[in-house]
Amino acid sequence: MTWTQLSLHGFKERFFSNRMKILWPLLSMFILGAAWGLSDPNIRLPAQIPLDSAYSILYVSSAFILLSATLGVVFVSFDGISRDRISGVLDIKLSQPISRNQLTTSMIISHWGAVAIPTVSLSIIAIFIIGERFEQYPSLTEVMIYLGFTGLVLLWYTLIQLLASSWAEDMGSSLALGLGAWMLFTLLWLLLTSVVAGLSGVAVDGSDVERWSDLQAQVDLFSPNGLYHLALETQIQDVDQRNSTFSLVMATCIWTIVPWYLLARRVKSMQP
C-alpha cells in the first residue's frame, strides 16, 4: 500500500536523523532514570505521593514522559510541513497522484513513530527495571493501559505539531506554535485551571478541595497531558475517579479524531 511504504520511508528518515541522536539519550535518561530512581525502596517523594505498587511507580514516572517525549515530538515534527513548503518540495509532493488522506496518514505515522517507538521501547525496559528493583511487576492490563496511552499522548502532540506546521508560514512560527502548545499543556495548565476555577466561583486556596478536584478533573479532559494522567489514574486503586469512564473514552476519541480530521482537511485544501 502506498501510505505504508511512504510512512516507513518517512519514519526511517526521521528515526535516523540528527535530532533523534540527541533525543535518544535524553529519553533514556528521563524514562530509565525515572524508573531507576522511583523504584528505589528508600525513596521519599514530596507531598506524600505513595509509591506502594509497581504501577504507581509507572504512573509517577509518566510525568517524565510528559517532560521529555512530548517535547521530543515538538522538535521532531515542528518542520514536518513548513520545511517542505519553504524549500518548494511541498509543490512536488502535492502534485503527486497519492490521495491527500493517504499523504496525511503517512505524515502522521512517520512523525509519531519516530518518537513513539523509542519511548515505548524505553518504557518497556523501564517496566523491567521497576520489576527487578521493586520486586513486583505491573499487571498486563496496567502495562497495556500505560503503553497505549503513552502512545496516544504522543499521537495527540504529533497532530497538534503537524497542524501548527501546516498553518505556519515559516519554521520559526511553527516551532513557536508547537512549543507554545506544549508549554500551555505542560507548564501553564494549572494556572489556566485556577483561572477557570476563579471564574466559576471555586476557591483556589484549598478551602474547597472537593469542588476544586471536580473542576480540575473536568478541565483536565481538555488537555492531552491531563487526559493522559486521568486515563492512567483509572488503574490506581485508592484514587477517587471524578470522571466517568464514558467521559474519558469520549475525550480520548475526540482528542484523536478531531485533530486528525482537521489535519486531513488542512492537507486536502493545502496549496503551495
Binding site: 502506498t2 511512504l6 520511508h9 509532493k93 497522484p97 497519492i98
Partner: peptide, 12 residues
Amino acid sequence: FEQLKEISHMQN
C-alpha cells in the same frame, strides 16, 4: 535515490 524512491511511493 532515496528522494526519488519517496516520490515513487507517492505514485504507487
